[in-house]
């Protein structure tokens, strides 16, 4: 780990490795209200800001979710380019395996992207394609978790969804059923596809959404990080366009709240901190059956491009 300490400090890693149910609120990236000029990527009215939060929920004994957020601004030709890295992971496996797996995934992915993209970019060295960068980041996590699992004789694994924001575009790498949603004016779009058989059946129209919601196999994944020697990683490139917010969350949020409600909540406020706690509160009120983690990113207005 040769990352500069400044970077680590400026970022927020949700939880130190396997500290069990310690909580909950992580410091946010760019404070949303008391913006200092250096932290504020202000162009027009909307500024780039992100906040992440996780909660154990109402029923679980431990929190197996983990996340990472980082917001920065990079010099780019004559101007700046907004940079954001958001990683979320929902672990599984007994004997603290889930916590370990999701924490390893989040740390490995964040480290890989910072070491192979952010630092070289700052020193004006060439970087590889963002697709291979992100896919390799998850593949690394897969290898590291699998190795650790074998040593420990554990069956642990995790979902892992990483979103890299770079100027006008978003780059996603994804395995499992943690989700990324994009909030646009008058639209709420789920960018990721759940790697669960039930999700696939839903996609094919074989079962109805209500059936999917109650399907006993709904959280059974056909792809995960750390449980096979190789992992197939979904990569997605998405122009942000007029989108205003980005949401990353674990199934503890989306399985508790209908999309409509999440959408409605996200449109009510512009402060990522408030939105995170509201969403978590709502998921807990709806039952809180699983760990809940949420990252809300407020996107800068896109006009800066022209």
């Amino acid at each position: 780990m040769s990352l500069s300490s400044e970077l680590i400090l400026a970022s927020s890693l949700a939880a130190p490795l396997a500290t069990g149910a310690q909580d909950q609120t992580a410091p946010n990236e760019v404070p949303t209200e008391k913006l200092t000029p250096s932290e504020d990527l202000k162009v027009g009215e909307q500024t780039l800001a992100a906040f992440g939060q996780r909660d154990i929920g109402q029923l679980r004994q431990s929190n197996q979710d983990n996340f990472f957020t980082l917001v920065a601004s990079l010099p780019h030709e004559d101007s700046e380019l907004g940079f954001g890295l958001f990683v979320i992971a929902d672990g599984m496996g007994g004997h603290a395996g889930g916590e370990i797996a999701s924490s390893l995934a989040v740390r490995t992915v964040a480290h890989h992207v910072l070491a192979n993209f952010l630092l070289p970019t700052l020193s004006e060295e060439p970087t590889e394609a963002l697709q291979s960068l992100l896919v390799e980041a998850l593949e690394n996590a897969n290898r590291i978790i699998l190795a650790q699992a074998r040593r420990a004789g554990s069956d642990m694994g995790t979902t892992c969804t990483a979103a890299l924001l770079l100027g006008p575009a978003l780059y996603l790498a994804h395995v499992g059923d943690t989700r990324v949603y994009l909030l646009k004016p008058n639209a709420f779009e789920q960018l990721t596809t759940d790697h669960s058989a039930v999700g696939r059946l839903l996609e094919l129209g074989q079962i109805a959404p209500e059936e999917a919601h109650d399907h006993p196999l709904r959280s059974q994944l056909y792809r995960s990080v750390g449980q096979q020697p190789t992992v197939q990683v979904d990569f997605l490139y998405q122009r942000l366009g007029p989108a205003t917010k980005l949401l990353l969350c674990s199934d503890g949020l989306w399985s508790m709240l209908p999309d409509e409600q999440i959408y409605a909540t996200l449109t009510e406020d512009d402060k990522p901190t408030e939105l995170c706690s509201t969403l978590i509160k709502q998921a807990n009120e709806a039952g809180g059956e699983d760990n809940i983690s949420v990252i809300v990113v407020r996107l800068p207005s896109n006009e800066r491009l022209s």
């Binding site: 029923l59 004994q61 599984m92 496996g93 694994g157 959280s219 059974q220 994944l221 096979q228």
Partner: peptide, 18 residues
């Protein structure tokens, strides 16, 4: 490979494994 949790859902894993 499928862990049983106290009351919630099961998070199961793995094509080859299942």
């Amino acid at each position: 490979l499928i862990k049983r949790v106290s009351r919630g859902t099961t998070k199961g894993i793995g094509a080859a494994l299942l």
